[in-house]
């Protein structure tokens, strides 16, 4: 068989071999729980961000978003006839957001709730465009995929009610592969862009991030006297991010890389105070590669057990040897 043909068969298998839907069910639960958690963290200041008299008022935030985007004020225009005030609408908007995310979490009419959650989050992002940061971007990417993925095939009310086929299928495989590749592209570009910056090679970018008041959680000024520590951490970050797209496909390396990514994002959460950002990045990587990593660990464990059993058999034979001789 030619190399081209065998590569084609491997590629075909990679994208089409039916995978069990459990990993997508876990992905849905993790992201929907995260959405609800983030919403409740927002609740005390919801009106300060989204209200008509927010710190940046509707007229201004509306003017700053592109024409085709859906600002919350444009959505309000559709319901203004009902007589509810702008403030009431913003509060109702919040509770509907929580409700649709809850529907997604339990997997009830999952596709419809996935579309609604995506749409609500999209309106949120368009309405506070100037406050958006990484955590919103990655949540939006995950919610976008939920509209198309068969996330209701496992761990959902839809599956419990037997309204969906729970068998492994090519749709699960394709969904997982597209999401995994997207994540690999993100990490590759992130690692690559860091490598282009001299500040990452001499550690100054990381050091400045640690000491500036926006992210400063602990006193890290002392690190200036030990630049090798910062340079090592910078190189570790670039290596882990750029290598993600390769290591995650190698069974021997996947578990260690996933652990390293979790460590990296835990570090971002603790030392830069970006708790939600760190959390969502961990959840995305765990959702994408956690199931494979778990299979790797089980495979190692079985292999180790088998090796131990074999070595015990050898010991028995060795032990029996003198008796046979005798």
């Amino acid at each position: 068989m030619s190399i081209v043909k065998s590569s084609w068969i491997s590629l075909h298998r990679f994208f089409t071999f039916p995978l069990p839907p459990a990993s997508l069910g876990i992905f849905r639960i993790l992201i929907a729980s995260f959405t609800i958690l983030q919403a409740f963290l927002w609740y005390p200041d919801w009106l300060s961000f989204f209200g008509p008299d927010a710190l940046v008022q509707w007229e201004i935030s509306n003017a700053l978003v592109p024409e085709m985007s859906i600002h919350i004020s444009r959505l309000y225009q559709l319901f203004a006839f009902s007589g509810i005030s702008e403030t009431q609408f913003v509060i109702i908007f919040f509770w509907i957001y929580v409700f649709v995310a809850l529907g997604l979490l339990i997997g009830w009419h999952t596709r419809s709730f996935a579309i609604l959650t995506w749409f609500w989050h999209y309106v949120i992002m368009c309405s506070i465009d100037i406050y958006v940061y990484g955590v919103d971007i990655f949540l939006q990417i995950a919610l976008f995929y939920f509209m198309f993925m068969p996330i209701n095939k496992a761990l959902s009310l839809d599956a419990f009610r037997k309204s969906v086929n729970k068998n492994p299928s090519w749709t699960v495989t394709l969904s997982m592969r597209v999401f995994q590749i997207h994540l690999c592209l993100i990490y590759l570009s992130s690692g690559y862009e860091k490598m282009l910056s001299p500040g990452w090679w001499n550690g100054n970018t990381l050091w400045r991030s640690l000491v500036q008041p926006d992210f400063n959680q602990f006193s890290f000024e002392w690190l200036a006297n030990y630049p090798w520590i910062v340079i090592t951490l910078s190189c570790f970050t670039m290596f882990i991010e750029a290598g993600y797209c390769i290591a995650m496909w190698i069974p021997r390396m996947r578990v260690f890389w996933l652990a390293a990514i979790i460590l990296l994002h835990s570090g971002i959460a603790v030392f830069l105070g970006l708790w939600l950002f760190g959390l969502i990045m961990i959840l995305l990587s765990v959702s994408a590669f956690g199931y494979d990593a778990l299979l790797d660990i089980r495979h190692w464990y079985k292999k180790r057990k088998l090796r131990r059993t074999n070595s015990m058999q050898f010991q028995t034979i060795d032990g029996a040897h003198p008796i046979i001789m005798g």
Partner: peptide, 23 residues
């Protein structure tokens, strides 16, 4: 750009890019 704005893929990923050192 419109397609990427729907799923926010247009975002350029930095995770502490060179911009972040400016405060």
């Amino acid at each position: 750009s419109f397609y990427c704005s729907i799923n926010y893929s247009l975002w350029h990923f930095g995770f502490i890019s060179h911009d972040d050192v400016r405060s």
